[in-house]
């Protein structure tokens, strides 16, 4: 079983929503610890579920809006995410539907999940910082 997994989500074709993919590229360029999986989640919603199985810590990386000043990075725990984001099933809500359902799916182990959120389209500095925060979380350092 993998110890940790980093799932980067976003849309490469839409610059305003591509920052998760930029973090993916940054992480892929590094030599990662063999206990870490790196996943290009794209626009996957519910179909990312298999990637939530078989590991103990998961960092989602995505753009956020309205949480903190532009060009900054924050970390939200799963419970915080669900407080902000209760939404039905739709194209935009597929991942949120999955996160809301996650505690009820009987996953063993149930992974500890956080979101590394980036405000703004992502400068090189924020992309690197997001990558570091994601690595710190999944390695529990």
């Amino acid at each position: 079983m993998k110890k940790g997994r980093i799932i980067c989500v976003g849309n490469r074709l839409l610059s305003a929503d591509a920052v998760g993919m930029l973090v993916f590229d940054e992480l892929r360029s590094r030599s990662l610890n063999k206990d870490i999986d790196l996943v290009e989640g794209g626009l996957g919603g519910l179909d990312l579920l298999p990637w939530f199985e078989g590991c103990s810590r998961i960092a989602l990386v995505d753009r956020v809006v309205g949480f903190c000043p532009p060009d900054t990075v924050l970390r939200l725990e799963l419970a915080d995410m669900l407080t902000f984001c209760r939404q039905g099933y739709s194209h935009s809500g597929g991942l949120l539907y999955l996160l809301n359902s996650l505690p009820n799916l009987g996953l063993d182990p149930m992974p500890v999940v956080c979101l590394i959120g980036i405000e703004g389209a992502g400068s090189p500095q924020t992309v690197r910082k997001a990558a570091e925060l994601a690595l710190d979380f999944v390695l529990n350092t």
């Binding site: 179909d47 579920l49 999955l98």
Partner: peptide
């Protein structure tokens, strides 16, 4: 999110 049919469908279609 938590209904039995909902959870079963999510798991079976994954």
């Amino acid at each position: 999110y938590r209904g039995s049919a909902v959870v079963a469908t999510i798991l079976a279609t994954r």
